Amino acid sequence: MSLAGRIILGTAAVTAFAMVAAAALVHWVVRAYLSPFADHFATMRRMMGWGPDLETIYALVDHALAISLGIAVFLGVLLGLLVARELVRSVAVLDEGLARFSRGLLGQPIRLVGPPELTRVAGSANRMAEELGGAQRAERELVAGIAHDLAHPLTAMRGTLEAVRDGLTSPSDPRTMTRLLTDVGTMETTLADLRDVAAAEVGALRLELHDVDVAVVTGGIAASFADLAARKGIRLELETGAPKPIAARTDERRLARIVANLVVNALQATAPGGRVGVGLSARDGVAVLRVEDAAGPNAGAAIRAALDGQGAGLGLRVVRVLGRAIGAQLDVRDGQAGATVELRLPR
């Protein structure tokens, strides 16, 4: 039996049961109240020729109760029909919405109609669909980032191999092997970043924590990008701000990856003739790393979007995920010349 049929049948049955019980009670009360006067009514009829007839009264009461029972059952069925219609309509809206979600149409929320219990279910389903939609968008952006980061080394490798095939360069030339190994290393780094991001987002990233001189790590990363900055015509400046070591208990390899990604992002965003600054200081028991670019006043918004996984490439998404994993705090500040990304590490 359908939901509507069960509601109508249930309402009619409950109404009929209640009315039968009420009729039996009224029947008993009327008889109990009038039966002591049966002899008086009989005497009136003998002496005066007329008077109340208890059997007739009982019959009229029973007839009125039967009519009332029929009317009550009819009204109960009508009320059940109205309730069932509204409830079935609400369930149908919920069912249609869930069917849309099952087809992948997560951007079409379920209308909140019907009783509070069903609207709460619909609201929970809408929140679930919103979270699933966010996860799908993040997955698409991650795939796009992987494709973006792998495209450059693959293209470079193809160019090198085609040059060897066409005789433009010799496979025995050490520079050929160096270029290929560099491109392979870039792809390995991208895959390692992808593994770290996947592990960190499920809480399975294994960290190797020990006391690290952040100044040494930062200086090494800055030195490794000096040639790239020079080729792009960008001034890469390192400001440590303190002659003594600045130590923090962290994962050195993941910290180096964060710093490298921030510097690469700044170099990519800064035009030739600009400046990229890498600064390091210690204050209030925290090691503070700053990377400044010269990408213009809108650079901060672009960095925030990329940190949330909305930009091309994995670089800044890796910064956000690994930074959170090692307990660092990230802050992006806007400026006229560009943006400053500040990374704060507990010492």
Rank of each mutant, 00 (worst) to 15 (best):
D251K: 13
L267E: 01
L330H: 03
G277H: 12
G300F: 11
R140W: 02
E55F: 15
P245H: 14
V14K: 03
A38N: 10
L34V: 14
V263M: 05
I71A: 15
R347L: 10
P272G: 03
A295Q: 04
G273Y: 08
L236W: 02
V276M: 11
S35C: 06
A271T: 05
A302F: 01
D334Y: 04
L82N: 08
E292G: 05
S172P: 04
L142P: 01
T190G: 14
E141R: 03
L345E: 10
G285Y: 14
M187Q: 11
R304Q: 00
A242E: 12
L280P: 09
D293Y: 02
A23D: 07
G274T: 08
M19P: 02
L142Y: 00
V61P: 01
R140Q: 02
E201G: 08
V93M: 06
G327L: 09
V30R: 10
G279C: 10
L322A: 11
D53E: 14
P243K: 09
V318Q: 02
I7R: 12
L69Q: 07
V217T: 11
D284M: 07
L118H: 02
G219V: 11
D213P: 13
E162I: 13
L289N: 10
R231C: 02
V214S: 10
A12H: 14
I8W: 04
L255R: 12
L118G: 03
P272L: 07
A163V: 00
K244P: 06
A200V: 03
H63N: 05
V263A: 04
R158I: 00
R120D: 13
D39I: 15
D53T: 08
G220R: 14
A248W: 14
V212W: 15
V14T: 13
A144C: 00
V286C: 08
E117N: 08
A4T: 12
A301R: 13
G203M: 01
R333Y: 09
A125E: 06
A325Q: 07
R100I: 04
A299Y: 12
G203K: 05
D293R: 00
A129Y: 02
P346S: 10
L112K: 10
A32L: 10
R249C: 01
Q136C: 03
L142C: 00
L9C: 08
V216D: 15
R304A: 00
R253Y: 13
M47A: 15
H27G: 12
D62W: 14
M19V: 13
S224L: 13
V164I: 15
T182K: 12
G80L: 10
G233C: 08
F101G: 04
R45I: 12
P36Y: 11
A248K: 09
R103S: 04
D331L: 09
L60F: 13
R254D: 06
S124A: 15
L81A: 15
V30Y: 04
T176H: 02
L25N: 03
L180D: 04
G274Y: 11
L191N: 03
A256I: 05
A295V: 05
S90V: 06
A312M: 01
I8R: 08
D284S: 12
A339W: 11
E96V: 00
A230T: 12
